[in-house]
Design a protein around this nucleic acid. Structure first.
Lengths: 290, 290
DNA sequence: CGGTATTTTGAACTATCTCAACTGGGGTGG
DNA sequence: CCACCCCAGTTGAGATAGTTCAAAATACCG
């Protein structure tokens, strides 16, 4: 679909009123670097669905997402798409080291990106050494985000993954309020991002509604009626364990530290097979509180 | 299990005969930086199973894996371990930006690590600006490895994931030879890394044997009898498609580029529902050849 | 408005997990 | 040296979450 092309390249990149100015790499720019960046980069706008870069294509530039959402997509040998990540404002797009794109990227919504040719980019970094640091931490941040997304997928059911994703869509929401969420991604993209089928996603969504955490106003629009419940839906590995932990514990052998229920022998086996340095768990866990 | 402690901190870090000298960040050091690094860092050796850093603990140092394998492990709210990654020689361990470890790490085999206190590390980077570049690309490489590992998991069955992992254990093997693999990870760790249960891993292993790709010599030792077959086992999303592509194609409509078989209507629906910018596939795919 | 794309629902199917029991090697202590 | 235990690995059988296929319902669009 190389027919869809950037709408209007514009060269007057005024960074001042750019939302990305607050986030990511751009926020590390001093006045000087900012001007230089604005001068040496150019902006492109992509309409929804437009392909930004194709997998396997030469990667001759580095970009920063100025606005919109970008799907990072991998095409497998079998020919299916998998959405790996959604890049938002401030995220870097394109691998500064690699000559060829490992993944393709596509505008999930109308998107504008500030590009710098690879050459220029390197020059830019040369002439603003302090930026190097910022770049490093931007890269690092994106690395960590990926790590977190892996962690979030692991050992979570489809409903939990979806619930968690929903929770993340409302950064600064309080338990009392009933915030609304507009799902800008298509079902297909969201399903792929959360590693499930469209059908399962749909069912999961309705399941969350049935359990009273949200209310579906339209296919792409919902209200979070009970944030606490939504959080709880996102949290636990599996219902049984979650429920068991939540209850005051029926009366299993005391001193059996092992996360609540599951009859004696089985539990013993499981924790033996389940985690080797069991003792360290207690020590390690305090960290999780943050 | 804080009882297991480093065996012998040694301060004479001779980098010359270090295997990590070839890989990762260390390979970017010039003579000067190398000496400085050796002087300012210290080595620690951990025996198998020893905890290197605990999740939530203060992360006051940065390390480079000199030898051995390190499990990067996350402990979930539910109390289960998930092995996220295996770090090998040359990999960076610890987040240079973060004050607190997001994950815990454990020596999967006897391991030695070169540590630098965070302070020293930053000083080191200051005084060797060229290293910055190397550090950046080391970080970037680890980022990409994580991305690839995500891609490898996505849309692959347990057997395929395992087969793929096996293939990766023999970097420079040719189709003709029958290389051997020593599985140093325990079943539990490997299963967790590949996101499956120990039982499934075991069955998958035997399934691969039954299909004639490998031969199990001992639980932790196997011979790859048919690398081509092993590769094929690792490759395709699902058997049907794989099989269909492998066959000479019964005689579907010509010009129907769409990955071979699957009777008309189904294919149409599927590819319609399966990937939106279908046209781009053809354009994007050439890239996969490399 | 008719046609097409997306979303939703239903029902059968299956890969993987869970639980449970068995095996075999390696150490330990009698 | 043997009996025993313990643990990692293996095998079996049943349960289940999630997929697949198919079709209805709804939204979208010229």
């Amino acid at each position: 679909m190389s027919s869809i092309q950037p709408i209007r390249p514009q060269f007057d990149a005024k960074c001042d009123d750019c939302t990305a100015r607050q986030t990511g790499l751009c926020s590390a720019f001093d006045r000087d670097a900012l001007l230089d960046f604005a001068r040496r980069s150019y902006r492109e706008t992509y309409r929804q669905g437009a392909e930004i870069a194709a997998q396997g294509e030469a990667a001759d530039r580095i970009g920063i997402v100025a606005s919109g959402l970008v799907k990072l997509v991998v095409l497998t040998e079998g020919g299916d798409e998998h959405v790996l990540q959604i890049l938002r404002t401030g995220h870097l797009i394109g691998d500064p080291e690699r000559e060829v794109n490992g993944f393709s990227s596509e505008a999930a919504t109308e998107t504008t990106i500030c590009w710098m040719p690879r050459q220029t980019w390197h020059g830019f970094l040369q002439s603003h050494p302090q930026i190097f640091r910022g770049f490093l931490s931007a890269l690092n941040r994106q690395f960590e985000e990926l790590q977190m997304s892996v962690v979030k997928m692991r050992g979570r059911s489809t409903v939990q993954r979806l619930a968690l994703w929903l929770v993340e869509q409302l950064p600064g929401a309080t338990e009392g309020s009933t915030p609304q969420i507009r799902i800008v991604l298509t079902r297909r993209d969201l399903a792929s991002l959360l590693d499930m089928t469209v059908e399962t996603l749909c069912r999961a969504l309705h399941q969350i509604e049935e359990r009273g955490a949200i209310r579906l106003l339209a296919p792409d629009h919902l209200a979070v009626t009970d944030l606490g419940r939504l959080r709880r839906l996102a949290k636990f590995q599996n219902e049984r364990i979650g429920a068991a932990l939540a209850e005051p514990a029926p009366a299993p052998r005391l001193s059996d530290f092992d996360r609540g229920a599951m009859g004696g022998k089985a539990t013993a086996m499981r924790s033996g097979a389940g985690q080797a340095p069991k003792g360290s768990l207690a020590a390690a866990f305090p960290g999780t509180r943050r």
